[in-house]
Design a protein around this nucleic acid. Sequence first.
DNA 1: CTTGACCTTCCGGCGACTGGAAGCCTCATA
DNA 2: TATGAGGCTTCCAGTCGCCGGAAGGTCAAG
Lengths: 131, 131
Amino acid sequence: MNIGAAAKQAELPTKTIRYYEEIGLIRPAARGANGYRDYSNEDLHILRFVQRARGLGFGVRDCRELLSLYRDRNRASADVKALAEQRIAAVERKIEELQSLRETLCHLVERCTGDDRPECPILSDLAAESQ
Amino acid sequence: MNIGAAAKQAELPTKTIRYYEEIGLIRPAARGANGYRDYSNEDLHILRFVQRARGLGFGVRDCRELLSLYRDRNRASADVKALAEQRIAAVERKIEELQSLRETLCHLVERCTGDDRPECPILSDLAAESQ
DNA sequence: CTTGACCTTCCGGCGACTGGAAGCCTCATA
DNA sequence: TATGAGGCTTCCAGTCGCCGGAAGGTCAAG
């Protein structure tokens, strides 16, 4: 299976697949007589695996870990769970950060009349001497 | 005032200040006889302004807009408000995305026993044929 | 006069791709 | 058999918002 077809199956751009190969996230694909990459069903599993892991917000480094656990028949599921829990914690931190940002922005927006006059508490606050 | 002192006042790394100058976000600082950048109080306001806008999640492009509004005495506060509201919308979209991510991850984690056995629904789901 | 903390510029790298150029390969159609 | 479209290959550059480091000039204190 050529890279284009594999890309469709895995819902990944061909560019991204080649990139993953380049950085060693996935193993180099087999090559046909014409030099084209040739993907097996096993390869497709791996590609989909990575696509989904990335979709869940795991970084490429995490994906390496996950893939090596995936391939390790002697893995402990606890290790996988730990990675996922770290991910959850990071997501939760990010959510809180964004919620606090949202709060601040909303307060600023509420105080701005939003008309054709130049006075604007948003700009004033940004430019203020302190805080 | 040298760049180091300005950096402390504005709570920005010196590298970042030079970078902002390089990309034309802020105007080139005046130079002393020794070639050192020299920052005025007005410059400090601008630096703090940018620091806070970035802290609120505005991109550099938005900061350009905000700075040009800040300098424009004929601005309409509506324009500033619109920028802030766009930012809020973007933040809210991101929050929802992350919350949905969190949900998915939590479901996966709940189903994983997290012991020393290799069976793991997280890995199974990532590798699954579809969905 | 030396030391160490500044300052200057320039270059390269980060993460995770994405776009584009230049050049093969393949396949369907005229 | 020629042609054209599309797919494949590699490599280089750019994205965003910086950060680290090297090589060298400047300055204030001891």
